[in-house]
Simulated scan of single mutants.
Amino acid sequence: MALTTMLFVPADRPERFEKAAASTADAIVLDLEDAVSPENKEIARANIVKAILDKRTFVRVNPVQTDLFHDDLVALARAGCLNIMLPKAETTWELESVAAALGEDITVIPLIETAVGLDNARELAAHRTVPFLAFGSLDFALDMGCEHTQDALRFARQTLVFASRLAQKAAPIDGVTVAIDDYDHIKADAIEARHLGFAGKLVIHPKQLAAVADAFRPSDAEVAWATQVVEAVAANGTQAAKINGQMIDKPVISRAERILLRSSPNRG
């Protein structure tokens, strides 16, 4: 499951579903939580039951700690939904609750938004239903009482990357950027996430998709370097080579191969 962009769509706005599905987003997240007002929750659930939910469509339910969670699961069972994003995820018991309601084939993306969730990140990532974690940076900053800045949240981001690696799961997906029209700002945030080891980013508007995709796509210079490395090794016939006076060994070769894989349009 190679996802760089996950685009949120309010579940009470069904007229946006088809447009989102036709976008360049790698996955769509129909949102029953923050994007839907309390009076529209039931309408939103009905829209999901009627929607066509393919393998690239996720549904963000309301937190387990709320009275809305049970009704969400009932609707998703009717819809045959197999991909869930779970906000405020804190314990594996919550993941078990989802699996019990929707079946063992369910895929759950825990959204880490609290200090408790971060502390339990490794256990959450290791759960059988979880392919990767996601970071709810806005709510996490609120829970911690800190600013929503790169410096303030760097420890949390690094912890999620570390926990994912220890659990031998895919790299996590970073939280949203609130700016919609500022391409440079969005791209800078996404580059920071990429440098820390994230695989992609949550997106709140289609206008953000290009900036995030550009940030996670290797540059021409990186691709040229990686190609040179791989070709030199192939010509040398060993797992080591010398390029521009520098010794290229297995870790460098692996990095080059990873860059070329990310640059491929068919990487997923």
Rank of each mutant, 00 (worst) to 15 (best):
D220N: 11
A115K: 04
S219N: 04
V229C: 09
D189I: 05
A235H: 14
L138D: 06
T227C: 13
K187H: 13
N120G: 01
E192R: 15
P218H: 09
A234G: 15
A211S: 12
M144V: 03
E222H: 10
I173A: 02
R128N: 09
H148Q: 14
T177Y: 04
L142W: 04
N120M: 02
F216C: 04
G136H: 01
R122A: 12
P218S: 06
V116C: 08
I186C: 02
R165N: 13
K169M: 07
A125H: 01
D139W: 04
Q208R: 12
E147D: 14
L153W: 03
D182M: 13
S219C: 06
A235C: 09
E192M: 12
A126L: 03
R217W: 13
K169A: 05
L133Q: 00
T149K: 09
T159P: 02
Q208L: 11
A234P: 04
G145V: 03
L124V: 00
A213I: 11
G136W: 03
A156V: 07
D174N: 11
G136M: 03
Q158H: 12
P218W: 09
K169E: 03
E222I: 02
S219K: 10
Q208D: 07
A232R: 10
Q228Y: 12
A232D: 09
K201D: 08
G136I: 00
F216T: 07
Y183S: 02
K207H: 14
F155L: 07
H205Y: 08
V223R: 14
F155N: 09
A199K: 00
V230Q: 14
